[in-house]
């Protein structure tokens, strides 16, 4: 079963094409991350899938419906975590969560959602008094209060401190374990690596690589960099498989106390992917 299916998606703003033929498929229950630099088309793509923006071309199916025409029953199955909302500043946290819960046929209990995002001590505070990170956690609470089948998270942890980010990751893993499909856009590679089953890298409106975090962009078969010091001189060799080289070094009785073997990190792979498409 697919949750999201996209074929040849296109979108231009004033003649400038920002999404240039994207194909995507996200399975039910999957956590899928969209990575890419600013301006790559992540937010535009997400907004088209959410039904917030019209597309210029291509086919899109989200939970079996076309977001451009789907109605309120379809929306009741989605959760959208906004990126930069500043609304309801004069309501309290509990008032706003309760208000949104009232829109859905089978909502989570408001107090439970607030506990889930760690805002219980702030439940009765006006939203305008929340810190940036607390405000984003409220956005998450509002996104999940309707028990969505599919959750959109557009750069959800921007402005979080490291501890809040870890707690947020735990929450996402919990939701995923309950079977929620999650589409995540993020700048943070370690976030994508920690959460996503699969990911796609967007650059200049196109998908330049797609796969599991471990195998993205040929990462699994990219080989390794072997370094060691020999007679005080740093030696480095790039090899597809380090085993024969190391065996040779051992056989030659080389001093290996400084030996390092490094494979490309997700960040290296990502940077080389988007670098090639600038």
């Amino acid at each position: 079963m697919t949750a999201i299916e996209v074929r040849g998606l296109r979108k231009a703003y004033k003649g400038h094409e920002v999404v240039r033929g994207i194909d995507l498929e996200v399975a039910r229950g999957e956590v899928f991350a969209l990575l890419g630099p600013n301006g790559a088309g992540k937010t535009t793509t997400t907004e088209i899938l959410e039904g917030h923006r019209r597309r210029d071309g291509g086919e899109v199916s989200v939970l079996g419906a076309d977001p451009g025409t789907a109605g309120s029953e379809w929306r009741a199955r989605l959760g959208i975590v906004l990126q930069d909302a500043d609304d309801a500043a004069d309501l309290t946290v509990i008032e706003m969560v309760r208000h949104l819960a009232g829109f859905y046929p089978d909502p989570r209990p408001p107090a439970e959602v607030i506990e889930l995002v760690g805002l219980t001590p702030k439940a009765k505070s006006r939203i305008r008094t929340l810190s940036g990170g607390q405000r984003r956690r409220l956005d998450v609470a509002l996104g999940i209060v309707g028990r969505p089948e599919l959750l959109f998270l557009d750069e959800p942890t921007t402005g979080f401190d490291p501890e809040a980010r870890r707690l947020f990751w735990d929450l996402i893993r919990e939701l995923a374990a309950e079977g929620t499909t999650i589409l995540l856009t993020t700048h943070y590679l370690e976030e994508a690596e920690a959460l996503a089953d699969r990911l796609a890298v967007l650059a200049a409106g196109q998908i330049v690589a797609q796969g599991t975090p471990a195998a993205l962009g040929g990462r699994a078969s990219a080989g390794a960099k072997v370094s060691w010091r020999e007679d005080g001189v740093l030696r480095t060799e790039q090899v597809p498989d380090p085993t024969p080289l190391i065996r040779k070094l051992v056989a030659a009785d080389t001093d290996l106390s400084t030996l390092t073997v490094t494979r490309p990190t997700l960040e290296d792979t990502y940077l080389s992917l988007i670098g090639a498409h600038r």
């Binding site: 917030h52 309120s72 906004l82 930069d84 909302a85 500043d86 609304d87």
Partner: peptide, 17 residues
């Protein structure tokens, strides 16, 4: 104001008409 502060965008993502 609702258009600017995200109120409308938030509601449009829910079943509210």
């Amino acid at each position: 104001m609702d258009r600017e502060d995200g109120t409308l965008k938030r509601l449009h993502g829910t079943p509210v008409s």
